[in-house]
Amino acid sequence: MSIFTSSGLSARRLTSLGHRLGIVAITLLGLLTLTFLIGRVMPLDPVLSIVGADADQSTYDQVYHQLGLDRPMYVQYFYYLRDLMHGDLGRALLSGNSVAADIARVFPATIELATIAILFGTCVGVPLGVFAATHRGRWGDQVVRVISLCGYSVPVFWFGMMGLIIFYAWLNWAGGAGRIDLAYDGLVESRTGMLLIDSALAGEWDVFWSAVKHITLPACILGLHSMAYIARMTRSFMLAQLSQEYIITARVKGLSEREVIWRHAFLNILVQLLTIVALAYGGLLEGAVLIETVFAWPGFGSYLVSSLLLGDMNAVMGCVLLIGIIFVSLNLIADALYQVFDPRTR
């Protein structure tokens, strides 16, 4: 590759990057507008959530005015966007807290949970999928298929309850509901909001173990669905590769079967797989309301749903924006991975 062509390429990439960012901005704006409209159309009255069902009309009107709901919708939207441009997500209508601060409080709990869940899902799902593909049609494949089917179809809520009953109430291996034993609550200074990291940074290993005991079960159960999905996709990706001639070429070269599978076939599905995992991770970061409910996990999903039910549209908009950004970034990252890992796109 000469310097000229590569610089030409990067110039092209730069314009395509600008192009892409434009699409991202439009997507996010569309998402926000839609959410805003839905929020205003939905029969959920934040004022009633604040003043209660039995407040008299003057109180109601006063709060209605204080929230700015008496302004025309486009004015409200304009102010919202203006504040957003200044990086201000506004204040939650109900608590008066800054939405950004609220999200900063609940999101680390979800990141922590989702990250461990996806690690579990990937570390178990990928080998299972590869195993199923290389044992296609044999009993191993069937076993993996049954496991995947369970992961897909059994409600996560049921898994959660069963997990609690078996591993918490019965075996006492898991730590029950919440992120940490209450005795340890508040012992560690919050730096990242992620208890595992905070406690490790502080060197508080008792706290760390308590957090590990609490997070493992919900994360694994949350990861089951991803695991099933990843295993299934890995299997089909691998099957597609294994039927190709380069695999035979590799075998004819004298490579061992393990090398053929991992060095040749698996290398080729890596990028596809990363995309799948990234999107699954995005789904987990949206929060998992059911798991959060069962395990009393103070995460993003619960925050979003309870805000929605109380009609707190400022909070909902902030959440939607974050979800949008997560998905857009994951897509960009997945694209970038293609660029990096696939020589054909260079």
């Binding site: 609690l164 509901a177 209450l182 069962v294 009393a296």
Partner: peptide
Amino acid sequence: VVLRHMTESQTLRLMLERGD
């Protein structure tokens, strides 16, 4: 005194049974 947010009744029950 610690108040913990738990909405799922069965979770409450398990925590109560375990004495947590």
